[in-house]
Design a binder for these strands. Sequence first.
DNA 1: GGAATAACCTGGATGC
DNA 2: TGCATCCAGGTTATTC
Length: 311
Amino acid sequence: MPELPEVEVVRAGLAPAISGATISGVNVLDERALTRHAGSGSDFERAITQRRVSAAVRRGKFLWFPLETVPHMPEEAIIGHLGMSGQILLRASGSSRERHERVRLDLEHPEHGELAMIFCDQRTFGSLAVDALVPTPDSAAGGYGWSAASIPRQVLHIARDPLDPAFSELHFRDSLSRKRSAIKRVLLDQSVVSGIGNIYADESLWAAAIHPEQPAATLSERAVSMLLVEVRAVLEKALAEGGTSFDAQYVNVNGQAGYFAHSLNVYGRTGEPCGRCSTPIVRVSFTNRSSHYCPKCQQDPSSRRPHTQSP
DNA sequence: GGAATAACCTGGATGC
DNA sequence: TGCATCCAGGTTATTC
């Protein structure tokens, strides 16, 4: 599932190919891929055709592609979220239709020539949209890959991610101190810290030896610092390995899978021995999804014994 | 206002 | 073999 490392791999792959390119054609094959867009498919096509893309930017799991300013028009960007199964592929112009292809942008790049940027999405949780750019509240760069202090309106509520130079540990610690919810739930709250999904939340909590159900506000200052160190380490390692691919649901812009699935310590390893103490990893239900943790290394502070599920 | 939950969605895996 | 059901999970609207 695309979390920060997977989205960053996509952004880094797109940036050189689309920065400076002009959108020569747009084909919306499925309007469900535009659920974030305020208008229709034809409106989306009209809004971006013949516009020039200036960069590929990311904050957390959101991507956006700022469009060069047109006189008398507000600053805008194409925003994209991969959801559960979204992919953005780069293909040769005129290439055959991809499986689950939803939107195709034809690009003309001054150096790379004609290209197709294709948004594919099996489960249609991802989407594209055109959105206005607004100033960032902290006047720092809006996201990774761009120096401008602006951000799409729809991304305004998304917190900075732990790899962002403008990420504030103080603000993060303060946010946690006011949350009674389980720490895992808070890590998944993109308005507190962005870029972390179910896989990297489990991995980071295991690395920091924190139980996923521990209330965030009960974590000591030292524990929060330790958690942040481990979150960054997990994200950076995953990024270096090209992200986590379990199946064809996550690939880079060339359609290639990442290798971090081989480095996972708890996620998807139910019943396997913990890498630290050899206790079998358990899986518990967690708000319509799963949590994986070591019951010995990650002690439950409230002594509540959640119901475990068999592998 | 904070916290918890349901709904959205498709295809692979599993059970019968 | 074929059909039905379960499961995966990011975001957001709704409910408590």
